[in-house]
Write a protein that binds this DNA or RNA. Structure first.
Length: 423
RNA sequence: GCGAGCGUAGCUCAGUUGGUUAGAGCGCCAGUUUGUGGCACUGGAGGUCGUGGGUUCGAUCCCCAUCGCUCGCCCCA
């Protein structure tokens, strides 16, 4: 019994939940394609350095959340905690830096060793995009627009809102950091213990502390916007203007920061209040410094990642894919004939539910449970005449149909067809 | 790593102020005579009452421990 449970923080995906999950991944992939993003699939584990070098020593993702292990060859490996670094690694590995910009979409599992709670698991899934090799603010705008487009197609346009901030270029970010630390240092006796620690490691993080007292202090803190140099300011203005032109509403949130070190300029999140304390559903920004940190050329990038489970939780139920056709043989002679007919229908692309045993009544019950739209009776009477008896399971109306007409007629009516999902 | 709540059938939950064979609804299986479902009726399967220990004549119920789940903090998608 204790052996037969999933590992903490992992879940089996099935039924309704899996359908929602799949819908998120599918809509995201096809929408991304409209923007010219092509899918890339990288391994789910990498050498530990791929993440250690990029995420920085201050990030919790590295210091305590990585699923790291040594394989039999003595290599230090890690189940990927996020995918941006892996995608960038793949670009360098495959020489994609020669053809820029690269627009890449991904979907897959990520792993972080943390305490599970609502909207947080140890194995979870992300969709994400990386637009690499474009320093222009237009790239940021396109990424955000794509994210918004996906959320809208998922029916979450009203559930989720966009928050926007900038960290400025490295020079501005540094200047702001200095100012912030100097301000916060005046409150050392009042800050929460967590924030005191962050003051050393990652002071920007204090800005989004949930501690009430921290928030009061933060309310009086200097804000990034006042420390932007002309270049950073102009970049941010262009991003905002672009969003405005596209009619994408956003809220400026000067306390919005990114956890990871290599971010600069644009930072954004799509958030919701419907998920408890894990409100961020999609987060991203610009990471111009990343490629170089990884030992590659100085190539800028921008992108985002979104939690599939979080999005799936927000989705309304997704209908089961197809209503099959139920084939019901009556009598021994019909059993054989039915499996031949079933094969014929299936090869024509029609989903067929074929019970293995039971009286007609029992098989009809099974047909109901399989959500069949129509039942096809095949008995001696019918076989003698080369016909089948069709029964519409919604209104009970029956009709006789020549066996030779079956495929054509079912297709014409869209019955059992996989490409037509019923409501 | 820290804090809080919760663990009784596949699911949602009753229950005993400690006392014979632990219940309901839903779901599942079968039947209600000959080749027709959804409804109804009847019957059935399914529980070491999370696990281990303690108190007691007796524990699912009280106590302790442990494991697990959930939610929150940290952090993040």
């Amino acid at each position: 019994m204790t052996q037969l449970r999933p590992v903490r923080g992992t879940h089996d995906l099935l039924g309704e939940e899996l359908r929602r999950h799949r819908k998120v991944a599918k809509e995201a992939q096809s929408t991304a394609a409209l923007y010219g993003f092509e899918e890339i699939a990288t391994p789910i584990f990498e050498f530990v350095d791929v993440f250690k070098r990029t995420l920085g020593d201050v990030s919790d993702v590295v210091t305590k959340e990585m699923y790291a292990f040594t394989d039999r060859g003595g290599e230090s490996l890690v189940l990927r905690p996020e995918n941006t670094a892996a995608v960038v690694r793949a670009m360098l590995t495959n020489g994609l830096t020669q053809t820029l910009p690269q627009k890449l979409f991904y979907y897959g599992p990520m792993f972080r060793y943390e305490r599970p709670q609502k909207g947080r698991q140890r194995q979870f899934h992300q969709i994400g995009v990386e637009l690499i090799g474009a320093p222009e603010p237009e790239a940021d705008i396109e990424c955000i627009a794509l994210g918004h487009h996906i959320l809208t197609r998922l029916g979450l346009g009203d559930v989720v809102s966009l928050e926007l901030n900038t960290l400025g270029n490295p020079e501005s970010r540094k200047a702001y950091r200095t100012a912030l630390v100097s301000y916060l240092s005046g409150f050392k006796d009042k800050l929460s213990s967590e924030s005191l620690e962050r003051l050393e490691r990652n002071p920007l993080r204090i800005l989004d502390s949930k501690d009430p007292e921290d928030r009061q202090i933060v309310d009086g803190a200097p804000i990034v916007l006042d420390y932007l140099n002309p270049e950073s300011r102009s970049f941010f203005e262009k991003v905002k203007e672009g969003l405005h032109q596209l009619g994408l509403p956003y809220t400026l949130n000067p306390r919005l920061v990114r956890g990871l070190d290599y971010y600069n300029h644009t930072a954004f999140e799509f958030v919701t209040s419907a998920l408890g304390s894990q409100g961020t559903v999609m987060g991203g920004g610009r990471y111009d410094g990343l490629m170089r940190v990884m030992g590659g050329p100085d190539i800028p990038g921008v992108g985002w990642a979104a939690g599939v489970e979080r999005l799936a939780m927000l989705l309304a139920d997704v209908a089961a894919a197809t209503r099959p056709v139920a084939l019901i043989p009556i009598g021994e002679r019909a059993e054989g004939a039915a499996s031949v007919v079933a094969a014929e229908l299936r090869h024509a692309g029609i989903a067929v539910e074929l019970a293995y045993k039971g009286k007609p009544a029992a098989r009809l019950k099974k047909a109901d449970k399989a959500n069949a739209g129509i039942a096809i009776f095949l008995g001696d009477d019918e076989l003698d005449k080369n016909v089948a008896r069709l029964k519409n399971l919604d209104d009970g109306v029956e009709e006789e149909m020549a066996l030779s007409q079956l495929v054509e007629q079912l297709l014409a009516r869209g019955l059992g067809s996989l490409d037509r999902s019923s409501p």
